[in-house]
Amino acid sequence: MKTKNIIIVGVGGQGSLLASKILGHLLLSQGYDVKVSEVHGMSQRGGSVITYVRFGDKVYSPVVDKGEADFIVSFEILETARWLDYLKPDGQIVTNTQQIDPMPVITGAAKYPENLVEKMKAKNFKVDAMNCLELAKKAGSQKAVNIVLLGRLSHYFDIPEEAWQKSLEANVPPKFLELNKKAFELGKIAEG
């Protein structure tokens, strides 16, 4: 199989490391060669962060480059827009519609762009957008945004539900497992 590429983008501290850990575990269980690449340190302090997940028969580079992503999984809608040029022409976007103001917007030096989902759709991007924060709260914790997104992403993969559940179990502390399973389910059945 030709290598598939996923980028997970968001704001530092939103929980993208757990999402990539679960994805890595899942893809490995399906027999793929997998590479996951992340950045630690300074950029994690509320900055724009990106994690790369690549899988296939044989994966060389640990990073996804511009124009290569089959999927953008995004925790925040401005971040979706920022990393759009990483998407392949027919790539799929799975995104949270939540808005988190970056510092230049807070200080008034810049404006938060409006109607980003509509603008993406107008440019024929394949966008699956939903308010993951609300769904996460419904599941029991606003921290479960990452699992809601994975639930949604599971639509686009031909991987049995059981395997997803196993990867959740292997990577989430037992006391939060039920909450996360609910978040996964809510993401999966959400209207995109």
Binding site: V11, G12, M42, S43, Q44, R45, G46, G47, S48, L78, E79, A81, R82, P102, M103, P104, V105, A109, A110, K111, Y112, P113, L116, K119
Partner: peptide, 9 residues
């Protein structure tokens, strides 16, 4: 659209 930067804070 102009995308405002998101520096670490």
């Amino acid at each position: 659209t102009d995308i405002p930067p998101r520096p670490p804070v």
